[in-house]
Design a protein around this nucleic acid. Structure first.
Lengths: 206, 206
DNA sequence: GAAAATTTTTACCATTTGGTAAATCCACGA
DNA sequence: TCGTGGATTTACCAAATGGTAAAAATTTTC
């Protein structure tokens, strides 16, 4: 019993669970939850379908496991935004990390986007448990910076939304972006310059 | 033959096609293309499944028809951005229209988002035929404004991406936004103020 | 190296789902 | 009002899909 058991997982178990989750990330991020099939995941993982179900309780279990495991990685850039240092540089560094993450982990970005888009039917507990507290904490931090006169008055929540939206856009809407950016050699670099300029100007004191 | 025919559609045909498309918009935007079923659409439309297939050639036909018909509405705010008037005000008015559209037509926003997210498998021709030319035209317009010294130097393409991303975010990620904005009475109003401030500052001459 | 435990495969199954054929219903103009 | 063509329903079907049982193969343990 490789899943819910209390025993420590064997080497084979760790390897296969990892292989399955990686294949599932691929398939789920490309086709969404309903659009993905166990057969596709099995083929991508190089395992048989029943073998997949030997390691996970079912399709939903794979999806939920993926989302849970990814949540930490996903929130890490925001965790790294600390009270020390210059507020503007802290926030701009966050923007940079978030944009880098959109480039390096587009599958993860699309997986989350698809889940949220459909009302987060399988992720709401994770959102409330992990995202919400972190979000509130960082909003409070930004509010402090504003009170101290180190940032212009602004709504921290909408600032964070704008950072999420503009950075993840390059992963989630990659199809559209590359269609419209044809001829551009390095979209990521120009996007980074644009966002740096935009948010620096927005965050500068009048 | 109510679909591909050359005859003019009867009143019943127009009504039922409209009812079906509205139901399909609901279902597709909530569950994505693969997640939506003809039975769901039929139930939502108050018609039987074979009756639905009497008006459309199949599931994909409904989806493609929806996307095509919506494209014009969707691009309208950008069409309205004209060379006359102050550049900053023109762009800010565009931001406002786009945000209003996200509030008034969230289903449409999510439908497009889901389609792009999965690589636009059923919309690429529409994108190349309608979106791309309009995008290029408006980028050229913004570039002109910059050359005239009426806007600071910036990349028009990334500016438009940022406008799309920040406004559509409130529709596409509504689940997340409302979870994190609990206690806010009017998210739309505060979002409007935030985006107005942010883009006005970004577009102001140094 | 045999027994025990774990892993993988083979052969299925029930349900869902997109779609069809044909019979039936019904609105409307002559 | 009656016939006709458009509209709707009933009864299906084939393929896809999530999942299972049990045998077979493999690895691990003693």
């Amino acid at each position: 019993m490789p899943d819910g058991s209390t025993k420590k997982p064997s080497r084979i178990q760790r390897r296969n669970r990892r292989v399955i989750l990686d294949a599932a990330l691929d398939v789920f991020s490309r086709h969404g939850y309903r659009g993905a099939t166990l057969d596709q995941i099995a083929a991508e993982a190089g395992l048989s379908k029943p073998n997949i179900l030997y390691y996970f309780d079912g399709k939903e279990d794979i999806h939920v496991t993926l989302l849970s495991q990814l949540m930490d990685t996903w929130l890490d850039p925001l965790v790294e935004m600390k009270p020390d240092g210059d507020p503007v540089e802290e926030i701009l560094a966050y923007v940079r990390r978030k944009l880098d993450m959109a480039r390096e982990l587009p599958r993860e970005s699309r997986l989350f986007a698809g889940e949220i888009l459909q009302g987060a039917p399988r992720m709401r507990p994770e959102l409330e448990g992990h995202l919400k507290p972190l979000f509130d904490e960082k909003c409070a931090l930004i509010a402090t910076w504003i009170e101290q006169g180190r940032l212009p008055p602004l709504d921290p929540r909408h600032l964070i939304f704008s950072i999420w939206a503009t950075t993840q856009h390059y992963a989630d809407f990659e199809t559209q972006v590359s269609l419209l950016m044809d001829g551009e050699s390095d979209t990521h670099a120009s996007a980074a310059r644009h966002l740096e300029t935009m948010f620096r100007k927005f965050l500068s004191m009048p």
